[in-house]
């Protein structure tokens, strides 16, 4: 199984490689990728350095061009595909069928992965992308249960990559417009979810309010840790009850499912978090490298070590982890 780690800048990429990533995924400094954050990502020059660093050490670089271009910006997506091809990356991670068509025609020999933003959750959808664009791999959304992942891996015409660790989207990726409903910008259109420019923190006598485009997303009392107001992770009012109506701020951690994922034939494990720190990727890459190696060696006696779980918890959002949808015994 391949370990695919995130990098938001060159030092994060080097750290990921040095700590055992088989492949690192990056994006360019614009809205062509789903982590379009200020101060993050690569220009042509740093992306070339990233490729050189990884290739010198026998590792791969994937470039995420995984938002949905609209006519006014189409040339940026074309350019992103062309630059990625020029600097010798190992695969593109794409969501939009228009961009996939362009990449397939212009750079037929450059491998194509379907991004999680492509939102393919079933074998027929994967067959569509295989048939149209001869994709090599698909990253599947974090909504499938372990039983569904197993079934899909059996039926899929392409290799599967699944999320192992990181922030958890509770909505199926690529089909969530909550952010643009509140702020005008979404992952699909702008590569942004709950963008920082729409966030406002207000100190009040009752505690801290966090607002997204003026809508109150959550209110934290003085003794609570105030979290970032991601649109789906606030506390809202439903019929007189105030609670995390959609999702609590937790992280996904599927380390203990590694033997199952391996047995299912999953080819790669993806770590979320290009927006996180170098320290984050160092710790997460190291733990997952050890875990994958241990699992390959002795799949039947694999146990998730306490130390690994502790290390991962220490860098988790909300410092809680969950198996997410993978743990749904009823399917």
């Amino acid at each position: 199984m391949e370990l695919v780690c995130p990098a938001g800048n060159i030092s994060m990429l080097k750290t990921a490689v040095d700590n055992g990533a088989d492949a690192v995924y990056i994006g360019f400094k614009d809205d062509t990728n789903a982590r379009h954050f200020a101060g993050l990502n690569f220009n042509d020059g740093t992306a070339q350095k990233a490729v050189n660093y990884a290739h010198d050490r026998g590792r791969k670089v994937y470039v995420a061009i995984n938002t949905y271009p609209q006519p006014a910006g189409w040339s940026r997506w074309q350019k992103a595909v062309d630059v990625a091809a020029d600097i010798g990356i190992d695969a593109l991670i794409v969501a939009d069928t228009g961009v996939l068509a362009y990449a397939t025609e212009k750079h037929p020999n450059l491998a194509r992965h379907l991004s999680v933003q492509g939102s393919a959750t079933n074998a027929e959808a994967l067959q569509f992308y295989k048939q149209q664009f001869d994709i090599h791999r698909a990253v599947i959304p974090r909504v499938l249960s372990m039983a569904q992942v197993k079934q899909l891996a059996k039926d899929s015409p392409v290799d599967l990559e699944v999320f192992g660790f990181g922030s958890l989207c509770v909505m199926v990726e690529g089909r969530c417009l909550l952010s643009s409903y509140a702020t005008g910008e979404s992952p699909n259109t702008c590569g942004a979810c709950s963008p920082a420019k729409a966030v406002r923190w207000v100190e009040t006598p009752e505690g801290t309010e966090c607002r997204l485009n003026d809508v109150l997303i959550d209110r934290f009392s003085v003794d609570e840790k105030a979290g970032y107001p991601v649109v789906c992770k606030g506390r809202f009012n439903v019929d007189g009850h105030t609670y995390h109506a959609l999702e609590e701020p937790t992280s996904l951690n599927t380390l203990e499912l590694l033997p199952d994922l391996r047995a299912a034939g999953v080819k790669a494990i993806k770590i979320e978090g290009r927006q996180r720190s170098t320290a984050y990727v160092a710790k997460v890459a190291k733990v997952w490298r050890e875990a994958i190696d241990s699992c390959q060696l002795n799949p039947h006696s694999f146990v998730a070590k306490q130390q690994w779980m502790h290390d991962l918890s220490s860098v988790s959002e909300g410092t809680q982890t969950t198996l997410g949808a993978y743990n749904r015994p009823w399917q």
Binding site: V143, V170, M171, V172, R175, C176, L177, D239, A245, L246
Partner: peptide, 13 residues
């Protein structure tokens, strides 16, 4: 329609 999930938010409520 804005989003779809593995989770049922009505059942959660």
């Amino acid at each position: 329609p804005l989003a779809y999930s593995a989770r049922c938010f009505t059942a959660r409520f």
